Computed example of a mutant assay.
Amino acid sequence: MRFSVLASGSSGNAIFIENDEHQFLVDAGLSGKKLESLFSKIDRSMDNLDGILVTHEHSDHIKGLGVVARRYNVPIYANEKTWKAMDGLIGNVPLDQRFQFDMETVKSFGGLDIESFAVSHDAADPMFYTFHQNDRKLAIITDTGYVSDRMKGIIRGADAFVFESNHDVGMLQMGRYPWSIKRRILSDVGHVSNEDAAVAMSEVVFEKETRIYLSHLSKDNNMKDLARMSVTQTLETCGIIAGEYVHLYDTDAEEPTELVTV
């Protein structure tokens, strides 16, 4: 199983996952043209996609969804409430490309099992995914106001995580956003801060080689260096030294991460 975080942030999100038989995209939150460019940077073609897995209907996750689905005849998977919320946002998608992926279920594609799970975000019915092949596991969790014990139980022990580290609380509180937006981000249906993300990470990693990709960083209320420093320090207070068996990686709004094997 291999993956690349093609883009991550408030301007657009997309994650590519493949095995020897299938290729999937989690979200398509950028223009079709930009997604094509990102695919070329990891030496892949969108012609080979077997499906797009939608997490929720916010524009930074579905901006290019309709265009890509129609241009490449790609199946789209989403739960019932998300399909309803996307009505009118992604244009016409043929019925034979519309598939329902219910919350808290598993779909199998050959040797690849994909599990959906609920998160806490201000969308119709937001959910994220874990990917399982043989004894390897990739967990994707962003766009949640907190990480519940149930979420931790589902993602625990993954070999790689794409984990939200959205904001620095101090930067957010002192920043230019109106209080209503700040309150939404800090709420249980907003986004996870650097420190809260790290505490959750400390409770789900096993003592084995683990890759954690810090994702969905706020352009206005976070920085890569700050996120990495905050997560590293918080992990250390929880007894985990970054670099020993837990390795932190940046993601970017414009450039894909290296395509790596889980």
Rank of each mutant, 00 (worst) to 15 (best):
P94W: 15
P75V: 11
L89R: 05
A69S: 13
L65E: 15
G91D: 09
G91S: 05
F99C: 02
K84I: 01
I90K: 04
G66T: 10
G66H: 11
V74P: 05
R98N: 05
R71L: 04
F99Q: 10
G66W: 15
F99H: 14
Q100Y: 11
W83R: 05
N79Y: 13
Y72N: 09
I76E: 02
Q100G: 04
D87E: 06
V74K: 05
V68M: 00
R98I: 15
V68N: 00
N92R: 12
W83T: 04
P75S: 06
Q97K: 15
V67T: 07
V68A: 03
K81W: 02
V74T: 11
N92H: 14
P75A: 09
G88F: 04
D102Y: 11
K81P: 02
G88P: 06
L89A: 06
R70W: 00
R70K: 13
M86V: 11
T82R: 07
Y77T: 12
W83Y: 07
I90L: 06
Y77Q: 03
I76R: 02
D102K: 14
W83A: 10
K81M: 13
I76H: 01
V74C: 03
N92F: 13
P94F: 09
M86G: 03
D96R: 08
V74L: 12
A85S: 09
L89F: 10
M86Q: 08
N73V: 07
R71S: 15
G66K: 12
D102G: 06
M86D: 08
K84L: 02
E80I: 11
Q97L: 13
K81C: 10
L89S: 05
Q97M: 14
K81A: 10
D102P: 08
T82N: 12
N79Q: 04
M103N: 12
A85Q: 11
G88M: 03
Y77F: 15
K84S: 03
G88R: 02
N92V: 10
N73Q: 10
F99K: 15
V68P: 01
M103E: 13
